[in-house]
Nucleic acid binder design. Structure first.
Lengths: 333, 333
DNA sequence: GCCGAGTGGGAAAACGATTTCACCCGACGA
DNA sequence: TCGTCGGGTGAAATCGTTTTCCCACTCGGC
């Protein structure tokens, strides 16, 4: 390994001078600068960032912990984060909490041991994730979701507004028999979307809660069909889902059973993942400003990592209703 | 920050002893062990991995550089890699090369400066990516794709076999007028899939080359429709795509134009991303053993990082044809 | 000729761990 | 009684940087 020592020897100066030239921290004689640069070039010297980090007490690296990397919403978020960081010469370290608070806690601790300068956390649980941050001496920003009772920076979108927009839209299209299909409200976003639905439609509105998957959407569709069979009021005229994966599952489940979509039943999603647009019928959904969320989160975090210590900030970006064919046509009664 | 010095003082031993207890590198008196453990507990000591890395000359971290994190194939790969690494107490550092060899090169260099123990690279270009590895003194494994003329470990799947399987299947279903729609053969996988197609169907078989996106699939569909309009031989009876994104775009494009899928035209994809199954019609595609690819890549890399230096190994895992409705029904002539 | 200010540069002390080296002590065999 | 062997320990060197501290020199003004 080529070290600063080697460069210093080759350039005929001390390592202190090499460091000054490379970091431009103090004025150095022109000719010394030139010979240092030449030596660096000739020897192919590259700074060892581990040593640098140890001495400077900062690593220029940031950790991101997400519940499940493979879920289509997170890669886009990670992409935005990675770009924001790279623009500032920071490196991204990634961990997947596998939707398990215990794993999340381990991963956060391991990353803190690596002396990352900050943490971006998408908490996997509204309550249990609190333990992941306990006693952590590290700037962090919560992304997308919050943790109950924790005053911290958070960047996300306004889920109540988003869900209200969906319901307003459906009603304007003459849909009035709404069912909610979502994931269990273990996260702040799932809870808020559910609560917004109940607040708009009524506390006794029908809801089905499962997990965040295509398969759950399919099963929920069967449940709706079974319920319609056994009397009651037939199918709802709109199914409101709290994410796109579930919505697409519902669409498949209903279509496979021969239900006339979207005429008989409208379906809405949430998140606007890439496939929502090419689904058949294309899915009406709530677009999350995911680039802005990622970039803002990075900005807030780097501010804190840079020593600023403002009161906790809550940034709620406006989501946007994207109307597509899955809510076209009028209600059937 | 609590350092080993603090622990040593609290336990009444030297820092050397603390290190020995924590790393179990040399026998230490029982009672000393106990007091060290107690001190660690009481002070909440956590090892500083930056300092440890500097001294040990290894960071227990591995870098992964992928062309585009948000493309649905890569998150699954990253997930497999992350799990494999976490099981071995290694941390994953991620970078996105944005499909640009120059960016790729920068990112790889930045990661090497961080002294990662190894690199997993999905090269963004079959030729130009060679520059990213030039003069790199770091164990690496190529994942999914290869680089021309480079003898290195590589883990991927057998694209020729996969593409052959698709064509055999289509012919068995009576489809004989095949068109290939894919991305430009800048990567080894795209090239091999294209070449396998040409080898099977004939060197003059019709092909359309674009990029790796839904939108290109849609545009390709319009081109096929336009061509069919202007005389010639009408539409092909099967469209063979070199990835699922493009295939789904083609499906949408044809359906929107009123083409009867899959009766009139069969469409196949490649990769088996999650949405292939819920596409309408569900997409016949080639499933990549992505978990196995990720795990194997990690294993090979850690072997090399551990000091082994075998001859370059090429691991080609068998892909699997997944037959779904998009290739059902017989050809129309 | 002396002083103060301003440049430029090197030696050495950090940063926080791991590891080498040297040594002590008790037990054991001759 | 005398090596010597092995467990147990600590001081100090080490990893490769950054930064502090100090010194040497020049220049301008008196």
């Amino acid at each position: 390994m080529v070290t600063m020592r080697d460069v210093a020897d080759a350039a005929g100066v001390s390592i202190a001078t090499v460091s000054r030239v490379l970091n431009d921290t103090r004025p150095v004689n022109e000719s010394a600068q030139r010979s240092v640069h030449r030596a660096v070039e000739e020897l192919g010297y590259r700074r060892n960032l581990v040593a640098s980090s140890l001495r400077r007490q900062r690593t220029r690296s940031v950790a991101a912990v997400v519940p499940h990397i493979a879920n289509p919403y997170f890669p886009r978020l990670i992409q935005a984060i990675e770009r924001g960081l790279a623009a500032d010469e920071h490196q991204l370290l990634i961990a997947d909490s596998q939707d398990d608070p215990a794993v999340e806690r381990d991963r956060v601790a391991a990353l803190a041991d690596r002396q990352v300068d900050g943490l971006l956390l998408v908490p996997c649980h509204e309550h249990d994730s609190a333990a992941s941050l306990e006693g952590l001496a590290l700037p962090y920003v919560l992304v997308d979701r919050t943790i109950a009772g924790l005053a911290a920076d958070r960047v996300g979108s306004d889920d109540v507004a988003g869900m209200r927009g969906v319901i307003t839209h459906l009603r304007a299209r003459g849909r009035h028999r709404l069912v909610f299909v979502g994931s269990a409200p273990d996260t702040s976003t799932a809870r808020q979307r559910l609560e917004a639905f109940l607040a708009e439609v009524g506390p006794d509105a029908p809801i089905l809660l499962g997990d965040y998957s295509l398969d759950w959407g399919r099963r929920a569709a069967s449940m709706l069909l079974a319920r319609a069979e056994t009397g009651h009021d037939g199918l709802p005229d709109a199914v409101v889902c709290d994410n796109d994966l579930v919505a697409i599952g519902v669409v498949r489940g209903l279509r496979d059973a021969g239900v006339d979509l979207p005429r008989a039943v409208a379906v809405t999603g949430y998140d606007d993942v890439g496939f929502a647009e090419v689904c058949d019928p294309p899915l009406t959904t709530v677009h999350q400003p995911v680039d802005a969320i990622g970039q803002t989160a990075v900005r807030l975090l780097l501010e804190r990592a840079g020593g600023e210590d403002p009161a906790p900030r809550e940034v709620r970006l406006a989501p946007e209703l994207v109307i597509r064919a899955s809510t076209a046509g009028g209600g059937s009664r």
